[in-house]
Simulated assay, not measured.
Amino acid sequence: MTEKDQRISDKFRQKNWNEIKINDSWMIFKIMGEFVRGFEGMSRLGPCVSMFGSARTQVDHRYYALAEEIAYGITQIGFGIITGGGPGIMEAANKGARRGGGQSIGLGIELPFESGNNEFIDKDLSHSFDYFFVRKVLLVKYAQGFVVLPGGFGTLDELFEAITLIQTDKIGRFPIVLVGRKYWGGLIDWFKDTLLQERKISEKDLKLFRVVDTSEEAVGHIKAFYDKYTVKQNF
């Protein structure tokens, strides 16, 4: 049995009813501890923008360079950068934040196939979590905007979390920027041709985000939003 097979087997190991109940009870304290540690670590931050995208993006890819440039531009209008702490787009965003002299925050997740947070995160702002949902709360709670570059399932999860919270008025509206018209075009078409046509969303829901291609457009949209509205923390 390979190491990967063993991990899967351990996850599905049969537990008796009492063992399940005991483990669930103690899990509450672990979850609470991660939230407390996260809230305390993030409470010192100024206004920030969370940036998302694929961990698989290579350093020589144009989206890596674009993420770095956007992050740099965002720091120049007074915001720090929060990422998931990993490689790819996240690394590029943290790199841009450091180059711009802004706060560079990384909220990593403990995974067997990743080697920890990237090197461009401020040492005192590098955090790691076991639970995805704890990290997602922090990525939203301490962000005054989202910039979403091309990514996979994790990126989509984080994007739809923010859109849903804003759509349902669980949090106040903040700017959500999707970078890459060609990349996101098929998804936007599906929103319009399927979700909207079948009345699963409304026309105004399509205005909850902006799709752009350039760093200037991304940074400009965030700046224009906060030229009009007050910066505030979410929930």
Results as ranks from 00 to 15, higher is better:
123 K>M: 12
67 A>Q: 03
61 H>T: 08
94 N>Q: 11
89 I>E: 09
90 M>S: 13
63 Y>A: 07
109 I>V: 15
102 G>S: 10
98 R>W: 06
88 G>K: 00
65 A>T: 05
92 A>S: 07
46 G>H: 12
114 E>I: 05
63 Y>K: 08
121 I>C: 09
97 A>N: 07
81 I>T: 12
84 G>E: 06
56 R>T: 09
70 I>A: 02
49 V>Y: 00
92 A>P: 01
46 G>K: 14
44 R>P: 00
119 E>L: 10
64 Y>N: 04
80 G>C: 09
122 D>G: 05
126 S>C: 15
68 E>C: 06
77 I>L: 09
108 G>P: 11
108 G>S: 15
113 F>N: 13
55 A>N: 05
54 S>F: 07
67 A>K: 00
71 A>S: 15
88 G>H: 02
78 G>Q: 13
105 I>C: 05
81 I>S: 08
48 C>H: 03
105 I>G: 02
47 P>H: 14
71 A>I: 14
70 I>E: 05
102 G>C: 12
122 D>P: 06
125 L>F: 13
52 F>T: 02
66 L>H: 08
91 E>W: 00
50 S>W: 04
85 G>F: 00
111 L>N: 10
97 A>I: 11
64 Y>D: 04
107 L>T: 10
51 M>E: 02
96 G>C: 11
91 E>R: 03
85 G>A: 02
100 G>K: 06
50 S>C: 06
109 I>D: 14
119 E>D: 14
82 I>E: 05
84 G>L: 06
92 A>L: 11
66 L>S: 11
44 R>Y: 04
125 L>G: 05
73 G>S: 08
116 G>R: 11
104 S>R: 07
79 F>I: 14
117 N>M: 11
92 A>G: 04
50 S>A: 12
88 G>A: 08
87 P>C: 06
96 G>R: 04
69 E>C: 10
97 A>S: 12
93 A>S: 13
84 G>Q: 08
89 I>G: 03
49 V>A: 00
86 G>F: 05
50 S>K: 02
98 R>F: 10
85 G>E: 03
54 S>Q: 05
55 A>F: 01
53 G>H: 08
62 R>F: 07
79 F>M: 15
126 S>W: 02
90 M>H: 13
110 E>R: 14
75 T>E: 10
58 Q>L: 15
107 L>M: 14
107 L>Y: 08
80 G>M: 08
70 I>Y: 01
53 G>S: 14
70 I>D: 01
59 V>D: 13
89 I>C: 07
122 D>E: 12
88 G>D: 03
60 D>F: 09
52 F>N: 06
111 L>Q: 11
126 S>K: 12
113 F>H: 14
65 A>F: 01
92 A>C: 03
44 R>K: 15
75 T>W: 03
49 V>Q: 01
124 D>R: 06
91 E>G: 00
103 Q>E: 15
107 L>R: 11
106 G>P: 07
61 H>A: 14
54 S>H: 02
126 S>R: 11
120 F>N: 12
53 G>D: 12
119 E>S: 11
51 M>Q: 01
